[in-house]
Design a protein around this nucleic acid. Structure first.
Lengths: 111, 111
DNA sequence: TATCGTTATGATATCACAGCATAACGGAAA
DNA sequence: TTTCCGTTATGCTGTGATATCATAACGATA
């Protein structure tokens, strides 16, 4: 038995940022491409790309700069706005895991 | 923009208890029937019943005592084990909303 | 100019879930 | 005794979301 949590931010009842989406953005920053990030996250390029579109549309902010063609085939990187959102989100959710783990230990350690 | 969270407990990568399921159990306790509880939760009886079966199977514990037929058509009530699980879960998750709200205010109040 | 990996999207298959339908049950009322 | 009613219990079917497949466009480099 193990505790699990999810945390996200909604706007008009729609997800604009979530733990998963922030991880995806971080993966894009690390790998330099949506394709590699999707692979790293274990999802199809298609799905990763769609989620990014969704976030951009709902936040009304460009999050990923993309380039098609070129030496490496192209690539992607985060906009300064995306970096700021990721940073904010990470600070926002910092300590959540510890909070949950401690409480789980306290009340479910015997199971 | 508003923060949202979910919290649950897994066993072998499968959900055994969650905020939603605990609310369902509480609704059964309050109303005295799965049918009324499902309606209260805004889902079909079918779905409510299935989730209870799932929890019982995965926890290997009987959670709901049911009675078919009779004056009111029958009804349901929680077993002592279920009451104990609900209580534990509520204690486990107490304070989570405040934790998240505070942090959200701190880092996203301007948006 | 041919190549190659990436972005960008359409088209189709698959699957969890919602909604509908129905049988069994048994106390209460007729 | 027989009918009635609301609940439990479960099968069946439609549907929307998601996964998988396929393909066009792009452009620096060799």
């Amino acid at each position: 038995m193990e505790p699990k949590t999810n945390i996200w931010i909604e706007k008009d009842d729609k997800v604009v940022l979530s733990l998963w989406r922030v991880r995806l953005l971080e993966a894009i920053a690390e790998t330099g491409s949506i394709s590699a990030a999707a692979s790293k996250m274990g999802v199809s390029y298609r799905r990763a790309w769609e989620k990014i579109q969704e976030c951009e549309a709902r936040l009304a902010v460009k999050l990923v700069d993309t380039q098609t063609g070129g030496s490496g085939g192209g690539g992607s990187s985060l906009t300064p706005e995306a970096v700021a959102y990721v940073d904010r989100f990470r600070k926002f959710t910092a300590g959540l895991d510890e909070f949950v783990s401690e409480r789980f230990e306290k009340y479910f350690s015997d199971i």
